[in-house]
Amino acid sequence: MSDAPIRAEKVTKVFGGLTAVDGVDLELRRGEVAAVIGPNGAGKTTLFNMLTGLYRPTSGRIRLGERDITRARPDQITALGVARTFQNIRLFPTMTARQNVMIGRHSRMKAGVFGSIFRPPWVNREEREAEERAGEELKFVGLKADLLDRTTASLSYGDQRRVEIARALASDPHVLLLDEPTAGMDPRESAELAGFVLKVRDERKLSILLIEHDMKVVMGISDRVTVLDHGELIAEGDPAAVRQDPKVIEAYLGRSAA
């Protein structure tokens, strides 16, 4: 048995008549940074949505360690230690950065209706800790201190990305899924972010799976690369080998010179 924190086994997702993901096997190994690449519409985000429980696979299984999470709900999967970001940032726009990150703590907190109303000491402690933790995470991702209590709708694009990562980290994940973290960034910002991903991996002992278009980032930080095209897995391996793979070259060059 391989040491894989999260693994997809022959997963397929069909929408109406369209097969978005077709029998893909994918595993993320402990402590690695792995990338999923592929042209637009290759099924990468659909795969992510299945891994995080937003979509239920048409067939195939998803395992978290030994545990079968194919039919688990997204919130259950988060509670089991999988966190994600979204391709087009999905923060809660009217909440402050700090509140957004506190939402990330939700699954680690316990206060229910009665706890929230009567606020026994443990609830106050829990709230305080969540607030402190949110501050720490935002500092960790490099958000300036004076922006912590601004609504996220008013933050710059780059800062919104940071908050989204902080929100994911706040849920104590051991698997982190990043959906195009460098989308919309200039080369310098992308390079910075690539370095940051490695730092997160090392300091938090995480396994990270990312979808990425920026080949520089992919080649720079990935231990392994999986290539999807038309929902099918066409290549997998270390970045250098994948780059040489004729099928990959064709998938990319066949469409455009991206």
Partner: peptide, 24 residues
């Protein structure tokens, strides 16, 4: 409270909220 925050989150973006661990 934790619940109040979760309600705002669900209201504003249910998909993000559920992905962040809020049981809808």
């Amino acid at each position: 409270s934790r619940l109040g925050r979760a309600w705002v989150a669900l209201r504003e973006d249910e998909v993000a909220a559920i992905s962040m661990g809020i049981p809808t």
